[in-house]
Simulated scan of single mutants.
Amino acid sequence: MQRLFGGEFGSQIAWLLPTALLSLVVLVVAAGRAGRTDKTRAFAVLWGGWLVVTGLVFSYMQGIIHPYYMIALAPAIAALIGAAASVLWRRRSEWLARAALAGGALLTAGWSFSLLNATPTWQPWLRWTVLIAGVIGAGLVLLLPELQLHRTALRRAGLFAGALLALTALAGPAAYSVQTISTAHSGAIPTAGPAGAGGGFGGGRPGGMGGRMGTSPGATTGQGGTGTGGAGSTNGQGGTATAPQGGGGIGRFLGGAGTSGVSSELVTLLQQGAKGYTWAAAAVTANGAAPLQIASEVPVMAIGGFNGTDPAPSLAEFQELVAQGKVHYFIGSGGGGMGGRGGSNGTSSEISAWVTANFQAQTVGSTTVYDLTGN
């Protein structure tokens, strides 16, 4: 799970991830040799399975992956830590339970310090506050039962220790949340926290890159300077990522500009041409089809799926749909070429080439449109 602890991913989800794994062990041990229907064990299997399986998928998956996907781990992390903390607190009179609770506090404090240290100039006091609170809280949890205190004093000290543990666990993520809420963001690929946040095994991220793309065919990734790609800007602090399909397609409409790139002439054409057709138009990639459909409120087919690399529909299937009169227009680029490309040998390219060779192009607004009825 190294990916989850480093770089962008660590600062998005890893704050309590080590403690969640420890909590899973605690719950399994607490269940012991209880019966098959034991609720604690069932709880551990359910949420532990969620955490481990999802974490492994994110750790080893190839292709397109963005840090905000990590939100899928949050319910399991919260459930495991909450349950384990409850079990250990109820059994805090036992030395082993106190040791586990204190160990979790120290683990959380140390790891939060590491993540916050990735941005040493941003709120530098916070990482030390978290670390000191964790050490003091862990010490109180371990030593309080050994101290000869009056019941009232012992209760107050216990509440103080609990408050320190909560501060240790939540101060870092809460600070990131406040920073994110209070900072203007734009684009379609959000990341939380200050620019350059990262840490763990993978180092920081330069200005907040919006996501990562792995080895999927035909996919590229960008970071840094501005552009017109479908991915849009990341978090208002870094550059604009390029569109998965590259250059000039209608997918540019989604890059934080919403439907502003869809001309009123094109909207009128689609609305007037929708009657009697299953799809008023077809466009390569979801980034190409979505803004058209949103702006015109008529059905638009997304050829090739999200980034144009899926073989759906095939060329033969698309030709059959056209022959049946189910698709009225094919949308090309804003500058005269075809829309998304879907790889040089992909199905999307085959469809684009077939349309180019067999139908007349016209310019509507600044967009190239092909009338598939031959009119």
Rank of each mutant, 00 (worst) to 15 (best):
residue 201 F to G: 09
residue 350 E to W: 01
residue 312 A to V: 10
residue 289 A to Y: 02
residue 224 G to M: 02
residue 357 A to F: 00
residue 223 Q to S: 14
residue 144 L to W: 01
residue 39 K to Y: 07
residue 35 G to V: 05
residue 307 N to A: 13
residue 37 T to H: 12
residue 153 A to P: 03
residue 255 G to V: 03
residue 226 T to Y: 13
residue 12 Q to E: 09
residue 238 G to V: 04
residue 131 L to R: 11
residue 75 P to L: 10
residue 139 G to F: 04
residue 48 G to V: 07
residue 315 L to T: 03
residue 360 Q to Y: 03
residue 182 S to C: 09
residue 227 G to Y: 02
residue 9 F to S: 10
residue 304 G to N: 01
residue 249 G to Y: 09
residue 87 V to E: 02
residue 337 G to Y: 12
residue 80 L to K: 01
residue 141 V to A: 00
residue 343 G to H: 01
residue 15 W to D: 10
residue 131 L to N: 12
residue 179 Q to K: 14
residue 218 G to T: 01
residue 177 S to H: 09
residue 80 L to S: 02
residue 248 G to Y: 09
residue 261 G to H: 04
residue 326 K to A: 04
residue 329 Y to Q: 09
residue 163 A to G: 08
residue 290 A to V: 12
residue 179 Q to A: 14
residue 89 W to M: 06
residue 53 V to Y: 10
residue 295 A to Y: 11
residue 364 V to P: 00
residue 111 W to S: 12
residue 271 Q to L: 07
residue 226 T to M: 13
residue 201 F to R: 12
residue 351 I to A: 10
residue 115 L to V: 07
residue 249 G to L: 01
residue 300 V to D: 05
residue 185 H to S: 08
residue 172 G to N: 04
residue 93 S to M: 07
residue 348 S to G: 07
residue 168 T to Q: 05
residue 136 I to K: 09
residue 32 G to A: 04
residue 209 M to V: 15
residue 258 G to W: 07
residue 316 A to Q: 15
residue 347 T to R: 12
residue 329 Y to H: 06
residue 273 G to K: 08
residue 55 G to C: 02
residue 350 E to Y: 03
residue 232 G to V: 05
residue 326 K to D: 05
residue 141 V to H: 08
residue 6 G to W: 00
residue 243 A to S: 15
residue 149 L to D: 06
residue 188 A to K: 15
residue 115 L to N: 06
residue 181 I to R: 11
residue 276 G to E: 11
residue 210 G to E: 04
residue 301 M to H: 06
residue 260 S to F: 08
residue 367 T to C: 05
residue 307 N to F: 11
residue 363 T to E: 08
residue 160 F to H: 07
residue 285 T to R: 04
residue 214 G to T: 04
residue 345 N to G: 13
residue 280 A to N: 03
residue 78 A to P: 02
residue 192 A to H: 10
residue 61 M to N: 14
residue 197 A to K: 15
residue 231 A to C: 02
residue 129 T to G: 15
residue 160 F to A: 15
residue 57 V to Q: 07
residue 9 F to Q: 11
residue 3 R to H: 11
residue 206 P to V: 15
residue 65 I to D: 15
residue 1 M to C: 06
residue 75 P to S: 12
residue 332 G to C: 01
residue 360 Q to M: 02
residue 337 G to W: 12
residue 95 W to P: 13
residue 355 V to W: 06
residue 123 Q to P: 00
residue 221 T to V: 13
residue 78 A to W: 14
residue 180 T to I: 02
residue 268 T to R: 15
residue 248 G to K: 13
residue 4 L to M: 02
residue 136 I to A: 03
residue 58 F to Y: 15
residue 285 T to L: 05
residue 31 A to Q: 01
residue 14 A to Q: 08
residue 256 G to N: 09
residue 134 G to N: 11
residue 261 G to F: 06
residue 333 S to G: 11
residue 234 T to K: 11
residue 212 R to P: 02
residue 195 A to M: 08
residue 27 L to S: 02
residue 291 P to Q: 12
residue 61 M to I: 15
residue 226 T to Q: 14
residue 325 G to L: 07
residue 56 L to R: 04
residue 97 A to W: 01
residue 26 V to G: 01
residue 185 H to D: 07
residue 167 L to R: 09
residue 40 T to P: 04
residue 164 L to A: 08
residue 3 R to Q: 05
residue 371 D to N: 06
residue 163 A to Q: 02
residue 269 L to E: 03
residue 100 A to S: 13
residue 55 G to T: 08
residue 64 I to N: 14
residue 322 V to Y: 04
residue 128 W to E: 11
residue 262 V to R: 12
residue 311 P to D: 07
residue 325 G to Q: 05
